[in-house]
Simulated assay, not measured.
Amino acid sequence: MEDKRTARIRAADADRERVATTVQTAGSEGRLTLEEVEERLAHVYSARFTDELTELTADLPRPVPARPGFPLTRAALRRYPALRLHLAVVVAIAVVAIVRWAVLGAGFFWPAFPMFWLAVSLFVHAGVRSARERAGAAVPY
């Protein structure tokens, strides 16, 4: 049977920083008083083992994992040039279709159909990129 002292795992700096962030967040949310935050942070930075860190946040709620948001955002367009290019092509084709419709004087607004499918292709592209990013895969585009 293993001795409890030999089964303990040493805490890394990253572990301490993660717990310190949790304690500071709880303090900013009003779950802990300023004195409790200071006391717990002192214990966090003096902790040598991970079980000591676990005890400091046992009474705090676990953070809710972030839900995936809308995949087509301004930040995504800045990060991924292929997505920006796709958007530019969609807009250009839509403008050409609308101008052609206006010039020909057709009564029925037929550009709605190609514009719908162009928008679907753009959202699928953004969704696939977002899913790959969440999965941790390298996203070259």
Results as ranks from 00 to 15, higher is better:
Glu2Met: 00
Asp3His: 15
Lys4Phe: 08
Lys4Leu: 08
Lys4Asn: 03
Lys4Ile: 03
Thr6Phe: 09
Thr6Glu: 09
Thr6Tyr: 07
Ala7Val: 08
Arg8Tyr: 01
Ala11Gly: 07
Ala12Pro: 02
Ala14Ile: 06
Arg16Glu: 02
Glu17Asp: 09
Arg18Trp: 03
Val19Met: 05
Val19Ala: 05
Ala20Leu: 02
Ala20Arg: 01
Thr22Leu: 12
Thr22Gln: 12
Val23Asn: 05
Thr25Cys: 13
Ala26Gly: 00
Ser28Phe: 12
Ser28His: 13
Gly30Trp: 00
Gly30Met: 05
Arg31Ser: 06
Glu35Leu: 06
Glu35Met: 05
Val37Gly: 04
Glu39Cys: 00
Glu39Asp: 09
Ala42Phe: 04
Ala42Val: 02
Val44Asn: 06
Ser46Arg: 15
Ala47Ile: 00
Phe49Tyr: 12
Phe49Glu: 03
Thr50Gln: 04
Glu52Lys: 03
Thr54Ile: 04
Pro63Arg: 06
Pro63Glu: 04
Pro63Gly: 08
Ala66Gly: 12
Arg67Asp: 11
Arg67Met: 10
Pro68Gly: 09
Phe70His: 14
Pro71Met: 08
Leu72Ile: 00
Arg74Met: 01
Ala75Thr: 13
Ala75Trp: 03
Ala76Pro: 00
Leu77Gly: 03
Arg78Pro: 00
Arg78Tyr: 00
Arg78Asn: 01
Ala82Met: 07
His86Ser: 05
His86Thr: 03
Leu87Tyr: 10
Leu87Ala: 12
Leu87Met: 07
Leu87Val: 05
Ala88Gly: 15
Val89Ala: 13
Val89Ser: 07
Val91Lys: 06
Ala92Ser: 14
Ile93Glu: 03
Ile93Trp: 11
Ile93His: 12
Val99Ile: 14
Arg100Cys: 01
Arg100Gly: 06
Trp101His: 11
Gly105Gln: 12
Gly105Leu: 15
Ala106Asp: 15
Ala106Val: 15
Phe109Thr: 07
Ala112Asn: 13
Ala112Phe: 11
Ala112Val: 13
Pro114Lys: 04
Pro114Val: 01
Met115Arg: 11
Phe116Cys: 13
Phe116Gly: 15
Leu118Gly: 10
Leu118Phe: 08
Ala119Tyr: 12
Val120Met: 15
Ser121Thr: 12
Leu122Tyr: 12
Leu122Gly: 10
Val124Met: 02
Ala126His: 00
Arg129Tyr: 08
Ser130Lys: 03
Arg132His: 12
Arg134Thr: 13
Arg134Glu: 11
Ala135Cys: 02
Ala135Tyr: 10
Ala135Ile: 01
Gly136Pro: 01
Ala137Pro: 06
Pro140Ser: 04
Pro140Ile: 07
